[in-house]
Deep mutational scan, measured.
Amino acid sequence: MSIQHFRVALIPFFAAFCLPVFAHPETLVKVKDAEDQLGARVGYIELDLNSGKILESFRPEERFPMMSTFKVLLCGAVLSRVDAGQEQLGRRIHYSQNDLVEYSPVTEKHLTDGMTVRELCSAAITMSDNTAANLLLTTIGGPKELTAFLHNMGDHVTRLDRWEPELNEAIPNDERDTTMPAAMATTLRKLLTGELLTLASRQQLIDWMEADKVAGPLLRSALPAGWFIADKSGAGERGSRGIIAALGPDGKPSRIVVIYTTGSQATMDERNRQIAEIGASLIKHW
Score class of each variant (00 low, 15 high):
58 F>N: 15
59 R>I: 04
67 M>T: 12
60 P>D: 15
163 W>T: 10
118 R>A: 14
25 P>A: 07
256 I>H: 01
111 L>Y: 13
285 H>M: 11
51 S>A: 08
172 P>D: 11
198 T>S: 14
57 S>H: 10
240 S>T: 08
151 H>L: 13
159 R>H: 13
285 H>W: 14
259 I>W: 03
241 R>L: 04
49 L>A: 09
252 K>F: 12
227 W>K: 00
198 T>W: 05
142 G>M: 03
171 I>N: 15
46 E>K: 10
274 Q>D: 05
241 R>V: 04
105 P>Q: 06
73 L>G: 07
279 G>A: 10
213 K>G: 08
189 R>A: 13
81 R>S: 08
222 A>M: 11
35 E>F: 02
80 S>Q: 15
131 T>G: 12
108 E>T: 13
101 V>T: 10
197 L>S: 06
173 N>M: 12
85 G>S: 10
104 S>D: 02
283 I>V: 10
129 D>Y: 00
201 S>R: 07
126 T>W: 03
146 L>G: 02
189 R>H: 14
240 S>P: 02
38 L>N: 07
53 K>E: 14
253 P>W: 08
95 Y>S: 02
142 G>D: 06
205 L>P: 01
58 F>G: 04
98 N>C: 06
133 A>H: 04
140 I>L: 15
108 E>H: 12
139 T>F: 07
31 V>C: 12
267 T>H: 12
170 A>Y: 11
109 K>M: 14
278 I>R: 02
29 V>Q: 14
251 G>L: 11
44 Y>G: 01
270 E>L: 11
72 V>Q: 03
275 I>C: 05
105 P>W: 04
211 A>F: 09
94 H>R: 12
74 L>P: 01
120 L>Q: 01
70 F>Y: 04
93 I>S: 04
32 K>E: 12
260 Y>N: 02
78 V>K: 03
37 Q>T: 14
222 A>K: 14
79 L>D: 02
74 L>W: 03
54 I>A: 10
99 D>H: 10
230 A>L: 04
55 L>I: 13
237 E>D: 13
160 L>Q: 05
128 S>L: 00
160 L>C: 10
40 A>Q: 09
264 S>T: 12
56 E>R: 09
204 Q>G: 06
185 A>L: 00
277 E>D: 10
99 D>K: 08
284 K>P: 03
84 A>R: 13
269 D>G: 12
63 R>C: 06
281 S>D: 10
40 A>K: 01
140 I>Y: 08
